[in-house]
Design a binder for these strands. Structure first.
Lengths: 238, 238
DNA sequence: GGGGAGCTGTCGGGAAGCTGTCGCTCAACT
DNA sequence: AGTTGAGCGACAGCTTCCCGACAGCTCCCC
């Protein structure tokens, strides 16, 4: 892999002793077109890293046998500089992790939201790709989102979004002009295991719409409802 | 199998403890030209997966003995990356599944409509075929349907279809220029077990015709009636 | 460590849109 | 001309969507 948007597939190694979680991450990554391999133990992780040569690693810290730090040490000892994104339970070893997140690495607290994990992975890859990396800016019509500064603009007007609104909008923008079901949005933007099968998505969309269309009176709504199916973000028409 | 539209047949394993359901799915798949094998228990599923090497698996979660998750874990433990689409009863383990498997949106609630299941399977296959997958657009004459954006156009004109109309039209387009009976349409588009012994299909077709032919006065009707048999979607003539 | 501000999700009412039933009319084939 | 299948208007019940109001929570500042 040279450029993660390029021809080559990103190669991801997921290490987590909870198979459903590892599989979840791998599945999502493949959905993005990446190549993903899982390992459920520290030993296995080292073995697979050696033969698979991943471009990036997702590493749970709580592993039976050799723990996450051990895996990291041995990876580094073998000379690889592959960037690592850590997973850790809330109130776990968060402090120690924080110290490790220099040099392109990052970490995430469980349970995480799939979209957030993928966003972090993309950022880390972009950074590690070299100094030549450019900003990641999403654009749909006159709506822009700078993923580095988290600035979102409708034309010139700067919007102030809450974290949830930001995530939902990012997902809509990233997938535009594909129609997404509420279930897809829920599953990608909210933490896995989120119980609320309620109308949260509707609500956030409703709030987003209000912010997006604030001034521009009857003007172009950007988020369209596809009744009985879901939502799309796209310019005009219909 | 390399490309699911290619020469090789797709190999499908269906796992459901309710034989009629499993057979239903297998039959439809074979009708599509796929190779399909069924299993009614978790143990059987693992055995068959090992020897059959499916390209995709449909897996009911409520199995006697080893349940769906168990099957998945063991499949993964044996190193296979085969994509899985889950089936689950409504309000059953739906939440857990949603959280853990829907990274790629691969589950369906029973009772489902056969066409919807097949559509998901195609999507998953298309996706897992690599990052180079392109949009899936159906075309018959000047009628086009984009399955990602759900945009349906007659020439330039954008149609606005309800979910049922959309499904019926998709089925007609996919099978065009084959003649389909009302029973076939009913069986594919409506959930299995649908009671309505009525003229729903006629009605939906009627509504579809009106939308398809809206402006183009006496122009080419696309949906033709084959009296005493069923309907076909095709360009003009006859 | 107390108070405040903003964020998130729940509840529920009301509006809009979708779906299937009924039954009459119309068209096609014999 | 009779018979049978298809078309379709009208309607009622149901589902889906939207959004105001509110309460719990977290995080920050003093």
């Amino acid at each position: 892999m040279q450029h993660y948007e390029g021809v080559e597939k990103v190669r991801l190694l997921v290490v987590d002793d909870d198979p459903p979680i590892a599989d979840l991450v791998a599945t999502v990554a493949r959905y993005e077109g990446w190549e993903a391999v899982t390992a459920y133990t520290g030993e296995d992780a080292l073995r697979r890293a050696a033969e698979f040569h991943p471009d990036i690693v997702v590493l749970d810290l709580m592993l039976p046998g050799v723990d996450g730090f051990g895996v990291l040490d041995r990876l580094r000892a073998s000379g690889t500089m592959v960037p690592v994104v850590f997973l850790t339970a809330r109130d776990g070893v968060a402090d120690r992790v924080a110290g490790l997140t220099r040099g392109g690495d990052d970490y995430l607290v469980k349970p995480f939201a799939v979209e957030e994990l993928m966003a972090r992975l993309r950022t880390v890859l972009r950074r590690s790709a070299g100094p030549s990396f450019q900003r990641s800016v999403l654009r749909v019509g006159d709506l822009t989102m700078d993923e580095d500064t988290r600035e979102v603009r409708r034309g010139e007007r700067l919007l102030s979004l809450t974290p949830t609104e930001y995530e939902v909008l990012r997902y809509l923008m990233r997938k535009s002009p594909t129609v997404l079901t509420k279930a897809q949005i829920l599953d990608h933007v909210w933490e896995y295991g989120f119980g609320g099968r309620s109308n949260v998505v509707e609500l956030v969309v409703s709030r987003l719409r209000r912010k997006l269309d604030e001034t521009d009176e009857g003007a172009a709504g950007l988020i369209h409802t596809v009744r009985g199916f879901g939502y799309v973000l796209r310019q005009a028409a219909e």
